[in-house]
Amino acid sequence: MSAGAYNFAYLDEQTKRMIRRAILKAIAIPGYQVPFASREMPMPYGWGTGGVQVTAAIIGPDDVLKVIDQGSDDTTNAVSIRGFFVKTSGVATTTRTDAATVIQTRHRIPETPLAAGQILVYQVPIPEPLRFLEPRETETRTMHALEEYGLMHVKLYEDIARHGHIATTYAYPVKVAGRYVMDPSPTPKFDNPKMHRSPALQLFGAGREKRIYAIPPHTDVVSLDFEDHPFSVQEFDAPCALCGAEGVFLDEVIVDDAGGRMFVCSDSDHCEERRAAGHEGTLAGAPAWSGAAAAAATEDAS
């Protein structure tokens, strides 16, 4: 043990063991929310304390950590969490999805497909997908136990009755391995298909709500829908203005005082790598764009 002021990765060994046991149960029961004794972290709830505890319990000196917030490595939240792990564990960090062994995320799944052996850790504010239908924990627990998910379908169907389509675009509920309905955290539904049979291990940590859940690799993750209203992801009218990428999630960014706007990759690393490889969008010469600005511009959307 170093003489530093912190335990390795901040948490004491007893807490890590407790979290590790919860993670193993979560992997064994995909989509089920395992209660755990969430600890106070040196950052407020809402800053991803659940994800931070999961990352702290798994990370080791051989890992390479990437932290993203709204798709960007550069937001205050991402920089602060990355700095926290550098300070407490000395772990190597990266912005490149394919160079990372552990990726902690809020709101997005990277566009670059994940690989076997990688672990994606989600920061989750509200882990219970049934919470807004039923506030009582004892009731939602019973509903999960009985696989009583009718209310969720009613809610989605009310969307269709009111809007003509399912209006839920974030935290869109999924069924994991044919059993548990799970909240994929406030990721856009655009990312839901990336969860399905991903070769990576996906871990979810909710600090305030004290829950850990997981999707093992190669596991079926199906977005709830109806035969006559099948699940579909958001589509964008134009490619990324900077790198020309299509089929990626775009953020609307205000580019000047006159209210000029453009749509650019939400995944800033993906965009930068494409530009470095010579891909150009219609505004490739535009002023330097930072992911932090994009995240700030979309803050209200979450």
Partner: peptide, 9 residues
């Protein structure tokens, strides 16, 4: 732990 987690996963 990482070996056991990988094994369970």
């Amino acid at each position: 732990f990482r070996a056991v987690a990988a094994a369970m996963a």
